[in-house]
Each structure stands twice: as C-alpha cells, then as structure tokens.
Amino acid sequence: MATGTTAVGTAGGALDGLPPSPAVWCSGLRKRYGRRTAVDDVSFTVGRGEVVGLLGPNGAGKTSVIKMLLGLVRPDAGEVLLLGRPSSDPRSRSAVGYLPELFRYQPWLTAAEVLDLHVKLSRVDVPAEERRECLALVGLAERTGDRVGGFSKGMQQRLGLAVALVARPELVVLDEPTSALDPLGRVDVRDIVLSLRARGVAVLLNSHLIGEVERVCDRVVILDRGRVAASGTLAELLGQHEVRLRLGDVAPRVEERLRVTGTLTRSGDWFTVALAAEDDGVTVPDLVRDLVGLGVRVHAVEPVRISLEERLLAVLRHDEPAP
C-alpha cells in the first residue's frame, strides 16, 4: 500500500509540472441533420491565452461546431475536451463564458438583475462591485437599473457580452459578438478580446467581420461546407509579403542590393521586393538604411500583403491566393 501511494504521488507531481491542456481540443467532429451533413471531420485546438477566429460563409457549420463544443448539440462522431475535461462533463463548462449568436433576456429584468441571475447560475462568488465593473466594461454603467425590454439591439448585445464575462471564465466563446453594434461598439469588443488574451483567457471568436478577426486573432480556422478548408496562424495563411519602394537615382549596384533582400520586380521608379515569410522585422529598415547610404532618394516605402479577406475568398473559391 505504501509503495502504491508513493507511485501515485510521484505521478501526480509529474502531472503538476506539465503545461495546462488546451482550452479547446476537438477531433473528428461530425454532425448530420437528416440527409444534410452540417459538420464533417472538424478538428482544431484553442490554446490557453490564445484567440482563434472561426471563419466561413453562412451555412459552413461554424455555429454547429460551437454548439457541439459546448455540449448544446451532441455530435454524431468525434471528441471534445474543454479545459482538459470531456465536454459531456458539466464541470468542463463551469469556467466557460458564452455569447450565443441569438439570445433574449427577460424584458422585465434590469441589466444588473440579469447579471445577478447568471452569477447565481454559475455558482461563482462575484462581488457586487465586480458585477458593476463588468457592466461598465461593456458600456452599460449608466443603464444598470434599466429594464432590458427598453434596450436597443446593440445594448442587448453589450449585456450578453457582460454575461459571458462576469463569472471570470478561462475560456470565452463569442458567436458574432459585434452583431448589431456600431463602430464604437466593435472597437470596445476588440479591446475586450485583447485584454482577455493579455490575462491568459482563451477566446474562440466567430465573426463575419474579417477585419476584426485579422486584428485580434492569433490563429484562424476556415470552415467551408462543414469541413476545415484551411487553418493556421495569420502569417501561415497570408504567406509571403512584399515591400514596395519608390526610388530615385537607381544605379546597378542599388538593384543588386535590392536583389539581396528578395525577388525584385520593377515598374518605372517603383521597386517591389518579396520578403521571406519568417522576416524578423529588421529587413526593411536595414534595406532603407543601405539605400540611403548608397545615395538613393527614397520617396516612399509601402508594405504589401494579401489580406485575410483575399485569402478567405481564395480558399472558398478553390483558387490560389492573389499575389
């Protein structure tokens, strides 16, 4: 018995030293509705403190995937772990905040009462002051005592975001969080997502606003017809980037210096240089310094890179990305 206890203790100590499991791990998710396959063999992870964007056209299966991750829909096949536990275990969802795409709160409740209700449901001790701070974070500090029935769609969206955040989640799942929000509201959501990442909170973000995804996400998963069409970091998805320079007084030795940096193309006084995908950020400043040292007049320096929108469209159309 003593030996067994020691072995367990040793194993436990070894496990304690391991890095935490991913916030989300799913493998081989499948779901059919009648004859239609909504999700087919979807696998991906969301690391702790990582923001992952879920992109794809309407009907691609994004919301179905989210519901399977959260145990709201049972998959026909596949496995899901949330924060290291099977999604079938209710404890796996105790530290998850969720903003669904479509939701409604009781119109007779005030914003503060809605938050109080969800704190009770979460069984997490959240002081009243912290609840007020959560409402202030989403821009509802002046409306805490107002009934939800009088809220605009944008204000209800802000309240839904507060509900997702109030119980100090380790994973936040946001399904179209900027729906019905004005430009200022979208900036607020972006800042909140970035602050969550800074605190080590994982975020899974489903949004049609590709620009927002490109600004805040570490990795992107693109779904098309229920399958993963592409996934990776933004650098991996967007590939090689370039820099365009408008130069004057270009001598042959100047072109030689440009070619040392990468493949060179010229159109008049504009020179385009392809940069390595693993560029460390000093290549362009060093290049400009050397050009000035060679007596070149540098009139303009413009970074050029395929946008996430272009890459998404290329994937969905089964084309190569635009150069």
Rank of each mutant, 00 (worst) to 15 (best):
G17C: 13
V292K: 03
K62R: 04
S94L: 12
F103R: 05
L205V: 13
L196F: 10
V114M: 02
V260E: 15
A202S: 09
G200N: 08
L165D: 05
R246S: 09
R244G: 05
Q156R: 15
L308K: 03
S195R: 12
V52P: 01
K67I: 11
S87L: 05
K62L: 04
R74D: 06
E256I: 08
R186A: 15
L82Q: 04
P183T: 05
A128P: 02
A230C: 05
Q106G: 02
S267G: 05
G12Y: 02
F44W: 08
V284Q: 11
A38K: 00
V243P: 00
W108E: 07
R85G: 06
G34R: 00
T178F: 14
D40E: 13
V39Y: 07
T283V: 15
A277T: 03
D269G: 00
L81H: 06
L161I: 15
T37R: 12
P100E: 09
L140F: 11
L159W: 06
R225Y: 11
E142V: 04
G49T: 13
V216R: 03
A2T: 10
P127L: 12
D269P: 01
L204Q: 03
S94E: 15
P169D: 08
G160Y: 05
L291A: 10
L109A: 14
R91I: 11
G4D: 14
V221D: 01
Q240K: 06
Q106I: 06
I192R: 03
E256D: 14
A11P: 04
G239W: 07
P183D: 10
V193W: 04
T10H: 13
R48F: 08
A162G: 10
R289P: 02
V213F: 10
R225T: 14
A277H: 05
H318Y: 09
D125C: 12
R85H: 11
E302T: 10
R147N: 03
A38H: 01
R225A: 14
T3Y: 11
V39Q: 13
L204H: 02
L109M: 15
P303K: 13
A230Y: 13
L109K: 14
I66R: 01
E256G: 08
L102C: 00
P303Y: 12
V298W: 14
A60D: 01
V254T: 13
